[in-house]
Design a protein around this nucleic acid. Structure first.
Length: 473
RNA sequence: GUCAGAAUGGCAGAGUGGCUAUGCUUCCGGCUGCAACCCGGAAUUAUGUGAGUUCGAUUCUCACUUCUGACUCCA
């Protein structure tokens, strides 16, 4: 039974999709104006984990993630970079996808772009205006918050106590209420000169930030969807505004389950340019590898802050390597497995389904990946103990397949046991084996060093030498 | 300032009204020609502070402290 923590109710709830066996998810994607940092990817990863878990449980999942390719920052920075808006955002869209691949994040069903959905946004604005929930001023269209009594239900903000003066926007635009937000923004002269504008019943405009998500989500799934994900910082105002726009227009509930991922911080502090502690994904992946980064994300519950540091990364890497080692060794042992039975065979076969249940229950408990990792460690330990004592082929196959099942859901260890060993290395390994048979330890040790210098390590086992690629460190 | 969330050993981290798991790290032992891997065992002042409820609190309540975030672009 899958339970999901819903920001709307601040409780874990039993998940029930709108359509039997099928789940619709909308995820807030990137604004493509710079290199995304690892914090951004933690959130994308969270959504990936949700998708994989749902599929593991047996749902068909349709994920839509938007790409914001027109907003204040993209317009500003493309100009600063002397590029057209499209060239600029295309460049960072490519970077975004590269990052997804580094982390082996599954592609969504669709990645709609804001610039390709402006018609829908204009329609939405019109509809809201007909309902008296929007008004035009100075060529911009604003949402009238006072017309939507539910405003604030997601963020639980009591608007009476908030200092509105903190907002600079008060005199920048001419709004009825300072909290009203723009659905469509009147184009500036500069934007018009650069060709960044769309024709609308109110003149030349460009989309406001919040409108795109409502439009794309409802275009993809209709008025109501199962799950909407994003980072905690989007709860207010972005998601609050999405609800206001969507529910204001349709009169129907917009999202059943709001899921928000906590932030990644660095040594206790928020990543920020002024502190100079921003890490991009390629930096970290370059140092530790994509799967270790995945493992880092998996080892902290998505609703908790992840405090990134070198020590944290090293720790994660060691943990990761140990679990990968088990799978490597399982793959290796399968080769030498026999059909004879061993004491403990039955015990193992009984334990495996229990572990499978525990693993599934961990993930079903609001995607508790750290707990799932603990179950994987249990399996690793069980496997290692069995490898000490027995090598029944059928048993090994069962252990191995469960190990693979777990690691596939978590998307880890894709390369385990698949190291390509160059011929040259194999020759040295064989040479070393003959030396060992002759008890020529000095020669054998020299050969091991030589193999190591080529980037491979040899482990002597009862079944013969196990050769694998050395982990870079 | 207002609001929201968080605080568990050297590190990571899950759980629980009554021995707190698990892994990393460190140490000892076994396996091994030696390693590596693995197995067995052990260790470290662990539940932010102070109250309250309770026979009993790390778990529930309150306050405080600290941190993070939202209120302003933000994953």
């Amino acid at each position: 039974m899958l339970q999901i923590y819903n920001t709307l109710t601040r409780k874990k709830e039993v998940f029930k999709p709108l359509k039997e066996g099928e789940v619709s998810i909308y995820a807030c994607g990137p604004t493509v104006y710079n290199m995304p940092h690892i914090g951004n990817y933690r959130t994308f990863f969270m959504t990936d984990n949700i998708v994989r878990t749902l599929e593991y449980i047996g749902y068909r999942v349709k994920l839509v993630m938007n790409i914001t390719d027109i907003d204040d920052k993209t317009i500003r920075d493309s100009k600063a970079g002397g590029m057209s808006l499209k060239d600029f955002t295309d460049k960072y869209t490519v970077e975004f996808f590269k990052g997804l691949d580094m982390l082996n994040i599954k592609r969504a069903s669709a990645y709609p772009k804001a610039t390709e959905n402006v018609d829908g946004m204009i329609e939405l604005a019109q509809k809201l205006m007909e309902k008296g929930l929007a008004y035009e001023k100075g060529g911009s269209v604003y949402y009238r918050i006072s017309g939507f009594p539910d405003y604030g239900k997601l963020s639980k903000i009591n608007f009476d106590n908030i200092i509105i003066g903190a907002s600079v926007d008060v005199d920048e635009y001419d709004k009825d209420n300072p909290r009203d937000f723009a659905l469509l923004k009147a184009s500036t002269l500069e934007e018009i000169e650069r060709g960044i504008y769309y024709e609308s019943p109110w003149g030349k405009i460009r989309p406001g930030w919040h409108t795109e998500c409502s439009v794309m989500a409802m275009n993809s799934f209709g008025p109501t969807l199962d799950i909407h994900t994003g980072g905690v910082d989007l709860i207010f105002p972005h998601h609050e505004n999405e609800i206001a726009q969507s529910e204001g227009a349709t009169g129907k509930p917009f999202v059943c389950n709001w899921v928000h991922g906590e932030h990644l911080i660095v040594e206790g502090e928020k990543m920020s340019k002024s502190k100079g502690n921003i890490f991009t994904l390629p930096e970290i992946v370059g140092e530790y590898g994509g799967e270790v980064v995945r493992f880092m994300f998996l080892s902290v519950y998505y609703r908790k802050k992840l405090d990134y540091s070198d020590a944290f990364a090293e720790n994660a890497k060691n943990n990761y390597l140990r679990l990968k080692e088990t799978l490597d060794n399982l793959e290796f042992s399968l080769g030498g497995a026999e059909n004879s039975s061993y004491p403990g065979d039955e015990e193992i076969l009984k334990a495996l389904p229990e572990l499978e249940t525990q693993f599934r229950e961990a993930l079903e408990s609001d995607f508790n990946t750290p707990k799932a990792i603990t179950v994987l460690r249990d399996l690793s330990h069980t496997a290692n103990r069995y490898l000490e004592a027995g090598k029944n082929k059928q048993v090994l196959i069962k252990i191995h397949s469960l190990y693979r099942q777990f690691s596939d859901v978590l998307s880890l260890f894709a390369e385990a046991g698949k190291d390509e060993i160059p011929e040259e290395v194999m020759r040295l390994v064989e040479e070393r084996e003959s030396a060992r048979k002759m008890k020529e330890w000095a020669i054998s040790d020299t050969l091991r060093e030589k193999i190591k210098s080529l980037g491979y390590i040899v482990q002597d086992t009862k079944e013969g030498p196990n050769v694998k690629k050395a982990e870079e460190s």
